[in-house]
C-alpha cells in the first residue's frame, strides 16, 4: 500500500511538471506579444518596446523563462498580471473561491440527482428503468452552456422577478449568494448527474446480486434497512470515485457557465485574460485548474486502492 502511494505521488509530480511545461509553452505561443498589443495603434519607438520586454523578462531564452516561472510558481508567486500590474495570486484567489463554491454546489446537486435516478433505475426496473435511461441519454446530449442559456431565456421570459445576473458575495449575504448560484450550478450538474446515475445503477445492481444481500433479505430485515445498510454502503465507493473524476468536467464547464451567468469566478477571468493576452494570468489559471484535477484524481486512485485491494497491483 505504501509503495503504491509513493509511486502514485511521484507520478503525480511528474505529470504536474509536464502540465506546467505544456501550459507555459502553449501560452508563450500566443500570436502577437503583449508589449506590442498594449502599445496598440500608437507609434512607439522600437527601443521603448525593447526596454518594456526586458523589464518583463520577455527577452530571455524560453527555457530560462520557464524555469524562473516554475521556481516562483512553486513558491506561490505567479508573477504580476500584465494588465492590472497586481500579483496574480491576489487576483486569482478570490475568484478561485467563487469557482470552488460553484463546482461544489454543482457536484452536490449532481450527486443527489444521479444517486436518486440511478437508484430508482436499479431498484424499480421495468418502466422506471427505461424512463430514467431515456432521460439520461437525452440530458447527455444537451451541453451545459446550452442548458445555461435556455435557463436564462426561460427565467427572462417567464420569471422576470428572479434577478439572475446579480452575484452576491458570500460574506455580504450567504443565503442570497447560495441562492444565486443554484441555477448556474444546476446547468453544470445535469450532464455530470448522468454519469453518476449510470454508475450508481451499475453499482447497485452488482451489489444486490451478492449473497450477503440475499442473506439480509432472507433473515427478514426491512427493505429500508437492506437498502441503507447493505446496498448503499457498498455502492457508495464507486459513486464517490466517479464524482471525483468529474471534477475536470465541472471545472471546464464553469468557464462557460460563469460567462453566461456573469459570475466573477476563475472561468470568466480566464476568458477575459485570453482576450487581453495576459500571459501570467492564463498560465496560472490553466496550471491551477489542471493541478486541482490531477491531485483530485490522485486522491481518488489512492482512496480506491485502499478500499479495493484488487486495484493495488
Amino acid at each position: 500500500m505504501r509503495r503504491m502511494v509513493i509511486a502514485r505521488l511521484a507520478w503525480t509530480v511528474a505529470i504536474l511538471l509536464g502540465v506546467s511545461f505544456v501550459a507555459f509553452m502553449l501560452v508563450r505561443a500566443l500570436p502577437g506579444d503583449f508589449v506590442q498589443t498594449s502599445a496598440g495603434a500608437q507609434n512607439v519607438a522600437s527601443d521603448v518596446l525593447e526596454a518594456a520586454r526586458r523589464e518583463l523578462g520577455l527577452d530571455r531564452p524560453l527555457l530560462e523563462q520557464y524555469l524562473i516561472w516554475l521556481g516562483n510558481a512553486v513558491r506561490g508567486d505567479f508573477g504580476y498580471s500584465f494588465v492590472t500590474r497586481q500579483p496574480v495570486v491576489g487576483e486569482i484567489l478570490p475568484r478561485f473561491v467563487v469557482t470552488f463554491q460553484l463546482t461544489l454546489i454543482a457536484g452536490l446537486i449532481a450527486m443527489a440527482m444521479g444517486v436518486a435516478t440511478g437508484l430508482a433505475s436499479a431498484r424499480l426496473r421495468g418502466r422506471a428503468d427505461w424512463i430514467v435511461r431515456l432521460y439520461n441519454g437525452f440530458i447527455l446530449a444537451v451541453p451545459n452552456f446550452v442548458v445555461a442559456t435556455l435557463i436564462v431565456l426561460v427565467v427572462g421570459l417567464y420569471f422576470p422577478q428572479i434577478a439572475i445576473f446579480n452575484y452576491t458575495p458570500f460574506f455580504t449575504d450567504p443565503l442570497a449568494n447560495i441562492g444565486g448560484l443554484l441555477l448556474p450550478a444546476l446547468s453544470l450538474a445535469l450532464a455530470v448527474s448522468v454519469t453518476i446515475s449510470e454508475n450508481t445503477r451499475a453499482a447497485v445492481l452488482e451489489v444486490s446480486g451478492q449473497d450477503f444481500v440475499m442473506v439480509a433479505r432472507a433473515k427478514g430485515l426491512l427493505p429500508r434497512t437492506v437498502l441503507a445498510n447493505y446496498l448503499m454502503r457498498n455502492a457508495l465507493t464507486p459513486i464517490v470515485t466517479v464524482t471525483g473524476l468529474q471534477v475536470a468536467t465541472l471545472l471546464g464547464g464553469s468557464i462557460l457557465v460563469e460567462t453566461i451567468f456573469a459570475i466573477p469566478g476563475m472561468g470568466q477571468y480566464l476568458f477575459d485574460s485570453i482576450t487581453s493576452r495576459d500571459y501570467p494570468v492564463i498560465q496560472a489559471i490553466v496550471l491551477l485548474a489542471s493541478a486541482v484535477v490531477v491531485i483530485v484524481n490522485m486522491f481518488v486512485d489512492i482512496a480506491y486502492a485502499r478500499i479495493d485491494a484488487r486495484a493495488q497491483s
Binding site: 505529470i15 509536464g18 502540465v19 505544456v22 501550459a23 502553449l26 501560452v27 505561443a29 500566443l30 500570436p31 475536470a248 468536467t249 471545472l251 471546464g252 464547464g253 468557464i255 480566464l270 485570453i274 492564463i282 490553466v286 485548474a289 489542471s290 484535477v293 490531477v294 484524481n297
Partner: peptide, 15 residues
C-alpha cells in the same frame, strides 16, 4: 491529465 476543455482553450488561444 489536462481538463479537455481547458487544454482546448489554451491551444486555440495559442494558435
Amino acid at each position: 491529465a489536462f481538463p479537455v476543455f481547458l487544454l482546448a482553450i489554451a491551444v486555440v488561444a495559442g494558435l
